[in-house]
Amino acid sequence: MWKYILKRVAWLLLVLVGTAFVIFTVMYFVPGDPADIALPASATFEERQAFRNELGLNDSYMVQLGRYLYKTFIKLDFGTSWTYNVPVMQELFSRMPRTFMLSLITIVLGAVIGIPLGIYAALHQNRWQDHTMMVLAMVGVSMPEFWLALMLVILFCLRLQWLPAFGIGSVANWVLPVITGTVAGIAKNARQMRSSTLETVRSDYISTARAKGVPERSVIYKHMLPNALIPIINIIGAQFGKSIGGTVVLESVFTFPGVGLFLLNSINTRDLPAIRSSVLILAFFTAVVMLIVDIIYACIDPRIKAQYVASGKGRRKA
């Protein structure tokens, strides 16, 4: 198993280098000249050229790419943001905890609430509990996040005046962003869990367990649940990986300074160091989350573990 993990870590580095290459190339071809943005409109042509020279923007593609890769991976210098004038890593690390916390809370709540709801719906299949829950889940999944956010703000901040609408001062500021982010998560998890449970419940080994005289409670928790949870882990992992950078909407609406807003702003101002380094960090986190998810998979499903061990050793176990 350790060999497998080491292999994955090695792949991670390759993924990062590949990501760096891709984002560099993409930003190279995107229209928008940093010189135009950074300098005032009255700057002369020579001044613009001088600015570009200083930033190395007038060199050829290969030279710029080489310089960038060298700087990032060998010197581990992730650059200074042209817009924020602070080292990119510093800015990211000051914002990361917030985004991280928001994502984590949202995902955990989404799982903790959504999974039991899904199981409950599946066990009461085709009865009113199931139908109600699935309708609500559909609504939850279809609602655009920003619309929900604004609706909640109008209700709780304007009409009821219970909660503050923006900022990051106190715990109260987190309530609405968390609720907004969790709704979609609960809905997705409930739907997935329901279908996963339904599939598992029909399995032969559940009949076997019942035929053995296992009480229904144990059938659900000991036999069905571990099997039904397997697909969900993947989904939750993917949700987490995506949400680190994907909370842009929430951050925008609630003035929640996180990684998403930072990246968005950097893209608008063509702040190349910030964009490249942010994307790298996001890629890193996503890859790590995926690795953790795969390891959890292996711990739960022995078939997967065997697969990993086999691939780590390079031959199949008889």
Partner: peptide
């Protein structure tokens, strides 16, 4: 000063007095 880009939030802020 709060850095707010979402106008709906600003309007609500003005209306509630925050």
């Amino acid at each position: 000063e709060y850095f707010m880009s979402e106008e709906t939030q600003i309007v609500i802020g003005l209306e509630t007095g925050s």
